[in-house]
Nucleic acid binder design. Structure first.
Lengths: 152, 152
DNA sequence: CTTCGCTCTCAAGTCTAGTTGAGGTTTATT
DNA sequence: AATAAACCTCAACTAGACTTGAGAGCGAAG
């Protein structure tokens, strides 16, 4: 068993962080590879995390729920001074920024819903005239291929 | 040039469908491989589409804007009687269904925004008590792209 | 000191929605 | 008949966010 037995305030192993934060160990490895979190190693090359990692992972998860891609989250986290535990003030700054994105996304979906209501009985779907087919409000996700982000 | 010269009511070649519907030829191939549209072939193995394909592609594109994944769109189109051109009534049925999804998505994001407003200064992010971290409203988050899975 | 569980690295696979390219065939026009 | 534009198939690539698996090492309990 791990190192969590009687050491409430020490560093955390990867499995413990996984349990406490609710993400998989593989995801933590992945975040670390992407530079979103950091760790140092024991003599035996195992990861040890400071307690700030829990807050960081929390921020990551919330930002993902907001629809922010990992790369952007990573950039934001890097603006925090040197591997510091994010404070409430830091969090406020990040969340205010992301709130704007969220708002835009909600607006876009709402407009779409309104168009859908208008068109729901017409069945026209004309390429030129139907508002549902005319993306007057394509925000970011223009273009080719596989970049449609805007999950739930 | 192709077969569209003086034959307004005949079948359509793949390039013409692409031009008229605004999707790439490769996308039409792809939709066909996925069973969302069908064609028959000439002696020389080239695709020929009935005119209903234009309406079908229109439905596909609109549904995608609503955030419906291709697999679901395909299932819906399969409920239409045998390769029939979707009528206005068919379209209404589909769109009413998808409207509910859209609404749910909007509601979810709105709740998320409200939580964010509440939490924007608190910085708590407690795993147990923070509403931002407690996904009381995970509806099958059928996101595009990667699997943003579960209790994100 | 053995053993079992945890952790390590690295490669490859998954899923969506296609695009791109190679190499070859068909169709329409000249 | 020759030529050019369109079309064909199939494989491989893209992006994002991970997961899965193989093969090997680490750490603490018994």
């Amino acid at each position: 068993m791990g190192q969590d037995a009687r050491i409430p305030r020490r560093e955390l192993g990867v499995g413990e962080v996984a349990r406490r934060s609710g993400v998989a160990v593989s995801a933590l490895h992945f975040y670390e590879a992407k530079g979103l979190i950091t760790s140092h190693r024991t003599g035996g090359n195992q990861r040890r995390y400071g307690r700030d990692v829990l807050r960081r992972v929390a921020v990551i998860k919330v930002a993902q729920r907001l629809g922010v891609p990992l790369a952007i989250i990573g950039d934001a986290l890097k603006t925090l001074p040197e591997a510091r535990t994010p404070t409430a003030a830091d969090w406020r700054k990040l969340s205010e920024h992301w709130r704007a994105d969220l708002d835009a996304r909600i607006q876009k979906l709402t407009r779409l819903r309104d168009s859908l209501d208008e068109c729901i009985g017409c069945g026209c779907l004309s390429v030129d005239t139907c508002p549902l087919r005319n993306p007057y409000d394509e925000l970011g996700e223009a273009g080719p291929g596989p970049r449609l982000l805007d999950p739930g």
